[in-house]
């Protein structure tokens, strides 16, 4: 069987040439990274750009856990907050440099995810609400006055001694690259194929020899890592923050909607979703958040009722109608 393809790809029917696929994968990582690296020459609002990059990473994190496993994390902000506070503690208590501290923020989020692995036993709405409860519990823990010596409790975290607008900007660009790479590799990997199988039917996947629990846990930890890194770089760039700001449920909400809007299960969908919707938010949401929220809510309802595949599905559908040859469309 010479034509048997060694790596499990998402392609079907006529398979694209391996070099073409590899080129597309490389572009999916490099183009967004390069665009963000150059963006500061066009838009001088670096904090806005960092925030958008943070949401790109968060949307990709939601993509990893929801897009590949069907687990909807309402409490995703918990990992973000854990990353932000992990970074703060690394700087304030361990005296780490900002870059190492950001990485440690990602590690702390992964540790939180390890503790929360039992949540993966829950399904559907149970998981969604349980993850929210876990995030709120974590927020309540971090902001508890009894832990002031570690987290500074409700009085907020101060990272101004390592503040660096340029440093945090480049760190954010690097983390965008990590997130894009993670999703591309996951999509092409055996784990990605297994996760798609598990999502389709858990029992069949299990009899195919897939370790369902391990596969899901892998996606869960990866998604936590991305959120933790995002939280860390956000903390670094904003430098002073309160627990309510980094554990805000709105962060989960934005990340989920950005990912859904762009299209989960795709590589570029969440990036487009985050950039487009965050710019809209920035244009009208900051001064009149309620009107943005209204639009946002309507968008979610429309996605749920009419566009379950998000923007990506609309584009693919249009392409399929144009091309109608099938084959290379996916």
């Amino acid at each position: 069987m010479p034509e048997r393809v060694a790596d499990a790809s998402g392609q079907r029917a006529t398979r694209a040439q391996p070099w073409r696929r590899r080129g597309a994968d490389l572009a999916a990582v490099l183009v967004p990274t390069a665009l963000f690296a150059l963006a500061r020459t066009v838009d001088s609002n670096m904090l806005l750009l960092v925030t958008i990059m943070v949401y790109v990473v968060l949307a990709q994190g939601v993509n990893v856990i929801y897009g590949f496993t069907g687990y909807l994390p309402f409490g995703y902000a918990g990992f973000f907050g854990a990353g932000a506070y992990g970074t703060y503690i690394a700087v304030a208590s361990l005296g780490a440099g900002a870059v190492e501290a950001t990485v440690l923020g990602g590690v702390v989020a992964v540790l939180v995810a390890v503790v929360l692995i039992p949540l993966l036993r829950l399904r559907g709405a149970y998981f969604a609400i349980a993850s929210l409860a876990a995030a709120l519990a974590l927020a309540s823990l971090v902001s508890n006055p009894a832990l002031t010596s570690v987290t500074n409790g409700p009085y907020g975290a101060d990272l101004s001694k390592v503040y660096s607008a340029n440093g945090s900007y480049w760190m954010a660009v690097a983390i965008v690259a990590v997130a894009m790479l993670a999703v591309v590799v996951l999509r092409r990997s055996r784990l990605g194929l297994q996760l798609r199988a598990v999502r389709a039917d858990q029992v069949s996947a299990s009899y195919a020899g897939v370790n369902v629990v391990a596969a899901r846990t892998g996606a869960w930890l990866l998604s936590a890592l991305l959120a933790g890194l995002a939280g860390g770089v956000y903390a670094w760039s904003i430098s002073v923050f309160y627990p309510t700001a980094v554990f805000d449920t709105t962060i989960s909400l934005f990340a989920i909607v950005f990912a859904l809007f762009g299209g989960v299960g795709t590589v570029l969908g969440p990036v487009v979703g985050a950039v487009v919707l965050y710019y809209v938010y920035n244009a009208i949401g900051v001064s009149d958040p309620q009107y943005f929220q209204l639009i946002f809510g309507v968008v979610i309802v429309i996605i749920a009722l009419f566009l379950p595949g998000g923007l990506a599905a609309v584009l693919v559908g249009a392409r399929r109608r144009l091309a109608l040859r099938g084959g290379d469309v996916r």
Binding site: A125, P289, L294, F296, I300, P308
Partner: peptide, 28 residues
């Protein structure tokens, strides 16, 4: 829409998540 969905429970979760945003916005 719920009837057409393969996973109506998850769809309802997302749908009503949107509805809750709309209500909160209108209330504000």
């Amino acid at each position: 829409s719920l009837g057409r969905s393969k996973d109506p429970e998850m769809l309802s979760l997302i749908l009503f998540f949107g509805v809750s945003q709309v209500i909160e916005a209108l209330a504000t």
